[in-house]
Design a protein around this nucleic acid. Structure first.
Lengths: 208, 208, 208, 208
DNA sequence: ACATACGGGACGCCCCGTTTAT
DNA sequence: ATAAACGGGGCGTCCCGTATGT
């Protein structure tokens, strides 16, 4: 869930690269501006010219990570022949990444966790990110003519987030691969004419 | 893990209560020792006599939270008539809590996120916590004579963690309720003689 | 014009001692808080607990230097038999100090120079200091029954400040000693019945 | 010390004008290169092509100020009929300038104060400046056939520097005018056959 | 057990004088 | 000439853990 970018390039990119790597690895509070400045080989004033504050830097990093994630997800689904297989491909790519040694979990989860205030830029980008994934999955589910695409998308996002958590907590040898079978079962359940789950949508499920 | 009785014990508890509330709400790095001391109304030395360091305090808080979580989960499952229903009850309780306004996500996820080093006490308690849940769910699945109980437990834990993430990122109005239907589908899939998923275990799923 | 104080003592005193030494030697802008902290062996927070800001520290140093200067001047004049001789003693002590190797000029002049804003605490203490010297000399001149004591005090202060400037600019081998003869001539001029200067007061002198 | 003609020369002058005004008003450390660049409307590289460093700029400003001061002093003394009156005229001009609202004290005193290191270019120009004044006054005193012209020049310079200090510390409403009467008394004392001061030279004064 | 202070260090944001690219 | 960049330093704040005093 973190694509490495070439170390050379503009100062802004170098800062974002270094900051992202450190934020992702050690957390947002744990990484100080001075460390980023030192490791990116950039002057402090250069950083503060590009990013007025640490929060802005965090937000910028998250925005870029968001774009990279979207590209990664689209790529993962591109080869799939039909929408339903796109969903499986998305979950499979997630499982593969979440069990790879370089995956340390989801940087957006960490942002939402370290910045609980919903007004914080970091939290907002994280929320926006998850909303996009939810909507994207729902759109594909709709393309696949599956029943209740929002509910299915919710279930798939829950699995994906569970996979990222597994990566963060358990490390590479985790159980994230289980999301693939789970996702297949979810999709099967939502096939038109398939076995009707006892509830049509998530909201109703709680009431019972 | 044994609280001394008397006034000293109550001081320890007050510290743990205050620290826990603040850690859960604002994060581990964001909350300072001074704030905990001030809000719990004890002297700093008292805190440091009970907890040799902030990390120890965090670990103690997480240990206690772990016990409380286990009790909560057992209570949630207690009324269920049979093991299979226990699993559903566990997931339903999770969904209810994750969508309640007082839920801010999973404090163990936050700990694993803020302390990425697997050797850190906070990370270790978080890992231990998730391992226990995994094993507990697997045990019940086994009691329910479901196929591949480890795989099912993994899927259910993934859903639960997804639900906590949803609570953290989206707030009370989240999609965590979708885990109930998803869990039902998972369980169905793992019923003996049920529709055989294309893979028997998670490990194999990735290889394909 | 700068008395050294024992290095041991309370933290506040150690800070003031170090800061004073550095401010006097290198100037107010040239000396940073970090240097003072490091050289005084004190924590930064300790400094900021005693002095809310650098300006407060500067003002506190100047206040203390002011008191020390007054004590020094009174001591210098104490042995003199009569008021007129006190004035000569004051100027002689000034000449001696201004030509001694440890004298680097007048710290109040430097403060007024580095903080030109009359509202700045540093400037205000400097002004207060010079005003006190002026008034003190005038008081003694009055005690000595000399004519136009304010004018005489002004002339003597001008000589003293000239001496401190000489120390700052020329170093130990300066011409400050000339203030003693000059002061004697001034005093003679202001003796009652003495040779009447062409003007009775300074104000009139300029008009001509 | 040779200004190039043409547009480059005017740029150099504009820089020196702006820098001088700011240095004189706010101090040498307090004024930054950026401010000078901005206020003088030249490019930073232009400044650094004319002055290799801030210290060089300061030195150049002081050199120019020194020349201007000499011209000002000579002009002030030009109308005087004889050498003795030149000395009075010099002190009177000093008194008038030191009590005028535009006078903020002596920029050479400030330089010597902010750059205590005698090797610093700023300090050296300041020293050179004071030395010149001393020598010039002594020369005139010699022309006036006054006794001990060096001693008299020292006394007059002490008065002048006292006047500049008064301007800096007290502002326009200061006591600098008192230097005129004082100077007259000094001169009288040094007239040949005049009342012999108790010491012939400054050095001896201290020993007693 | 409380309160206060302390040492040492990191941090956030900012500005400095200077150089390099464009 | 515009602009960015650079290393270094500045001030003021915060934090953790310890040591007082009472």
């Amino acid at each position: 869930m973190e694509a490495t970018v070439g170390a050379s390039g503009s100062a802004r990119d170098r800062i974002l690269d270094t900051a992202g790597e450190l934020f992702y690895r050690d957390g947002y509070h744990a990484v100080g501006i001075d460390t980023i400045v030192e490791r990116s080989g950039v002057a402090k004033m250069t950083l503060y010219r590009h990013f007025p504050s640490k929060d802005h830097l965090i937000a910028a990093y998250l925005e870029r990570a968001n774009e990279e994630f979207r590209a990664w997800l689209e790529t993962a689904m591109a080869a799939a022949a039909d929408p339903e297989r796109k969903l499986v491909a998305a979950l499979r790519a997630t499982a593969e990444l979440a069990t790879s040694p370089r995956c340390l979990g989801c940087t957006f989860q960490a942002a939402a966790s370290e910045f609980p205030d919903p007004q914080h830029p970091g939290h907002q980008v994280a929320l926006e990110h998850k909303r996009w994934v939810l909507a994207r999955l729902a759109g594909i589910a709709r393309d696949a003519r599956l029943r209740d695409p929002e509910s299915l998308a919710a279930q798939l996002l829950l699995l994906m987030d569970g996979a990222w958590v597994a990566a963060r907590v358990f490390g590479p040898g985790n159980h994230a691969s289980a999301i693939v079978d789970a996702a297949r079962a979810m999709i099967t359940t939502h096939r038109p004419g398939g076995r009707s789950a006892r509830s049509g949508n998530a909201r109703a499920a709680l009431r019972r």
